[in-house]
Amino acid sequence: MNLPQALLRHRTLVIEGADGIPRNGLIAALADHGFPIQHLPDRLHHVDPTRPYRELLAAPGRVALDGSIIHELVYGPLRRGHSRVTWIQALDFAESVAERDGALIHLTASAGFPRLAPTDFTEVADAYARAMRTLAQHVPVVSLDAADLTHPPLRPGTPAHRELGRKKQQLTVRW
């Protein structure tokens, strides 16, 4: 199985990862594969932070979301000491993505990744890893290292010589 096949068997994809990890190449490739890309505002709805996501997930067809409430679940405690999104809301979101034949794409990068302070990155990477382990009980999670996405490019029909492994509902992609 090549990487495009692994990712495109889902009709809903949610791209998640630490700030500063480039996602433009992945987003462009998903758009090439027919996924409309939705970028939601950084500000959450003040009463119901999950409302815009529920509305998007209720629409028919394919969709790829660049970022989601999981970002707030990770960064809220690190920046403000608490998240404006509860775990119940995050788990409900994960189940909604799964019901829509979807998956979370967890973009990762090594600790020496440019544009991120190593200590901040480690803390954020650990928080994302914990969140993804929990959410993987409710929705498939595809882990991708950002460095792997640049060589070779993810284009339709381009085979990716990578190892694909399954652990429960988590799909890990490695070179």
Rank of each mutant, 00 (worst) to 15 (best):
D101C: 09
D66M: 05
I37N: 06
I27A: 14
L30K: 05
H46R: 12
L107D: 11
Y53N: 01
R80V: 06
P41Q: 11
G25W: 00
P77N: 06
P77R: 04
I69G: 02
P114Q: 10
A28V: 10
I27F: 00
S110P: 07
T50V: 15
R115T: 15
G102D: 11
T86M: 09
L78M: 07
L116S: 15
A111H: 09
D32I: 00
T50A: 14
A64N: 10
L91T: 12
D48G: 03
V97I: 15
L57C: 11
R115V: 14
R54F: 10
R51N: 00
L26F: 11
S96M: 13
A94T: 01
L65Q: 02
R62N: 09
L78Q: 04
D48H: 09
A58V: 02
I27N: 05
P77L: 07
L65C: 03
A58D: 13
H46N: 00
P41F: 08
Q38L: 13
G61P: 10
A31E: 12
P52N: 05
I69M: 04
H71K: 14
G112C: 08
Y75V: 05
L116A: 15
P77G: 07
R80E: 15
G102Q: 11
F113V: 14
P52K: 05
L44Q: 07
G67R: 12
L107K: 07
I69N: 01
G76F: 03
Q38E: 11
L107F: 09
L107E: 10
G67E: 01
L116T: 14
G25E: 14
L40D: 02
P41M: 09
I37A: 06
L40E: 02
R84P: 00
L91P: 00
